[in-house]
Amino acid sequence: MKNNKGMTEIVKTITSLVEPAILLYGIHITLYGHLTPGGGFAGGMILAFLFILLFIAYGKDEAFKKLKFPQEHIFDSIGIIGLLFLLSMIFFAGGHYALELINKVYSGRAYHLFSAGPMMLENIAIAVKVGASVFMVFAVLSVFGKEKKND
């Protein structure tokens, strides 16, 4: 692929139609991870696919304009620091204490979205971290690798 213009008009139109659905699906998989199959890993990867699709369909130059590109490492760090913070908070406060505290704030019951204590927050942290990491894998291996060849 010598040009960085992306694919044809059909692919671009379909991409712009499908994008919001993928975004909503990823968020749903992440948030309902403690009730249904899915969770942080799967949701984060679907969110990463959103950006990978943008890159492949629109080409490198357009995508660079649309996204402020080198921000993933910040999201990556935010995700892992959030996970570390949540887990160490549970460790120092005692698991059941933290569970009861957050359950009181949520006032949740079983089988409801706001239940299961810190699990939803952990899922969100993992989703941010894994999504940023997977997109970085794609970017490092295909975009940066290509730049060297084209020079």
């Binding site: 403690h34 887990l87 569970l99 079983a110 299961a116 204590g117 699990m119 899922n123």
Partner: peptide, 19 residues
């Protein structure tokens, strides 16, 4: 843990440091 999905509760609660 309050989670019906046992895999998630093993990953995030019983064995959280593994994750």
């Amino acid at each position: 843990t309050g989670a019906p999905n046992v895999v998630t509760s093993v990953l995030l609660d019983y064995r959280g440091y593994d994750t």
